[in-house]
Structure formats: structure tokens, C-alpha cells
């Protein structure tokens, strides 16, 4: 369960981007988690809400966008979304592929603030 450490990193990373800016409070933080990021949405929301936060983040809400796993097949020249599980196979020809287009994200996209 490293979601507490991830929640802490979200606050730290956002804080470092807010230095020397005139901000009263951060309203929302928008993050993206790929299904292969290894971070569980529910656990992260729970961790984020439990974390002691300084004034700027006292009422901050966390918005999590989950991102599906999408791979590219070199033979078919096609993208496919992996629906069940995490087997990296082309949906058309069934061949294995290591070319991941989406699904490993663990990013902070934007914030809203006052």
C-alpha cells in the first residue's frame, strides 16, 4: 500500500509548482492513473483524504481520471485496448506486443485554485 506515499508526492509536487505564486487555496487537483500504474484509485482517494494537509490544501479535492491500457501492433499497424487483464496482445491478430501507447500514466495534469 504505497498510495499514502503517492498522495504525499501529489501534494509535494503541486506545492513545488506553486512557489512564489499568489494562491489562497487549491480547489482541485486533476490526476491521471493508467491501469498499469500500480496505483489503486480507491486507495489513493482514501489516502489523500486522510492526509494531514497544510492550509493551501485543506479543502482540496482529488479528481482521478483512469486510463485504459492501449497497445500498438507492429504487424497489423493497429491500436487495441486491452479489456480483460493485462496480457499485452493485439486484439486483431493475437500477437504479443510490448508497444504500450497508454495505460502506464501517473501524472498530475492541472489544478484549479483561488
Amino acid at each position: 500500500m504505497h498510495e499514502l506515499a503517492v498522495a504525499q508526492s501529489i501534494i509535494q509536487t503541486v506545492s513545488s509548482h506553486l512557489e512564489n505564486k499568489n494562491i489562497r487555496k487549491v480547489s482541485r487537483i486533476y490526476v491521471t492513473l493508467g491501469v498499469l500504474s500500480g496505483v489503486e484509485k480507491g486507495a489513493l482517494l482514501e489516502s489523500f483524504s486522510l492526509m494531514p494537509k497544510q492550509t493551501l490544501f485543506h479543502t482540496t479535492k482529488l479528481n482521478i481520471k483512469e486510463c485504459e491500457l492501449v497497445v500498438y501492433c507492429d504487424s497489423c499497424k493497429r491500436q487495441s485496448t486491452i479489456k480483460n487483464g493485462f496480457r499485452l496482445q493485439c486484439a486483431s491478430c493475437g500477437k504479443r506486443t510490448s508497444r504500450i501507447i497508454k495505460g502506464t500514466e501517473m501524472t498530475i495534469d492541472r489544478i484549479t485554485y483561488e
Binding site: 508526492s9 498530475i108 484549479t112 483561488e114
Partner: peptide
């Protein structure tokens, strides 16, 4: 003071500091 929230784009890895 306005109550309309402003938007700031960040686009960075959550674990930026560790990376």
C-alpha cells in the same frame, strides 16, 4: 476576491521528485 477558480496546467509525473 473572485470565487471563480482559476486553472493552472501542470503536466508532470506524480513522482517527479523521485524520478
Amino acid at each position: 476576491m473572485s470565487n471563480n477558480p482559476k486553472i493552472m496546467t501542470i503536466r508532470t509525473g506524480i513522482l517527479e521528485e523521485n524520478d
